[in-house]
């Protein structure tokens, strides 16, 4: 279980996270929703070890991750796929995947996982020699997810994977999230698309201006009046 207790984050003088606590039990999909600027990305980035100016405790399997750098976090089994996909446009699809496995040295395991990612996303196999920058938005998102999976993580954190995709592709993204969860990976999902996220999530947290405003099982929040008004457009 990944556990965040009383997490604070500062950017210069801006106090962006003001005591966020959340739990991501093993094997679950947990989603973090909230308006733009609520602190969703900051939460993930702090867990991933990118943000130094923070306070609070982050533990995974009872091990303290709070002071680890991103390499340490990846090695402990948690990977983050950043907002906006951020694939490497000048590297080939294959190289992007290899890069995702940078923290590993088991060549056989890496080769197996490349195959697994190609099975999950056959389009990536077709385009494996192509530069990342030449892929369509949907393919880039597949590559971003595949690249994250290449670190052989136990927990995958996805920051707005459906952002900017056509509706049909958005559906695919949520399908994929379900698939990787069924393969045993724990998912911490940040989404603007609250409706779709709540539908697949076992548990959900609603962030507002740097704090948790509300939390509960995904299905319950879907019926919650406040959530409906604020995030589901009704």
């Amino acid at each position: 279980m990944l556990k965040v207790q009383d997490l604070h984050v500062w950017y210069g003088g801006i106090h962006a996270l003001k005591g966020v606590s959340l739990e991501v039990p093993r094997g679950r999909i947990v989603t973090l929703i909230g308006a733009n600027g609520a602190g969703k990305s900051s939460t993930l980035r702090a867990i991933a070890g990118l943000i130094r100016n923070k306070k609070g405790v982050i533990t995974y399997k009872d091990r303290d991750l709070t002071r680890l750098d991103p390499v340490g976090v990846v090695k402990s089994g948690i990977v983050m796929s950043p907002e906006g996909r951020r694939i490497f446009p000048h590297l080939s699809v294959f190289e992007n995947l290899q890069l995702g496995a940078y923290s590993r040295s088991d060549a056989d395991g890496i080769a197996r996982d490349v195959e697994w990612v190609y099975e999950l996303f056959p389009r990536l196999r077709e385009r494996r020699e192509q530069k990342g920058g030449t892929l369509s938005g949907g393919e880039q998102q597949m590559l971003a997810v595949g690249r994250a999976l290449m670190s052989a993580p136990e927990v995958v954190m996805l920051d707005e994977p459906s952002l900017g995709l056509a509706p049909l592709l958005v559906r695919d993204v949520f399908e994929i999230i379900k698939v990787i969860n069924e393969r045993g990976m724990t998912v911490l999902l940040v989404e603007q698309n609250a409706f779709a996220a709540l539908k697949i999530a076992h548990y959900a947290y609603v962030l507002e201006t740097g704090g948790v405003a509300l939390h509960g099982p995904g299905k319950d929040l879907l019926r919650d009046e406040r959530v409906c008004r604020a995030y589901l457009g009704g």
Partner: peptide, 20 residues
């Protein structure tokens, strides 16, 4: 070298992918 080419484009994402 792969790490070098990656960080020359995007240090933060490289770091997230476990590149030291």
């Amino acid at each position: 070298g792969l790490g070098m080419r990656a960080i020359s484009k995007d240090i933060e994402t490289s770091y997230l992918m476990g590149v030291p």
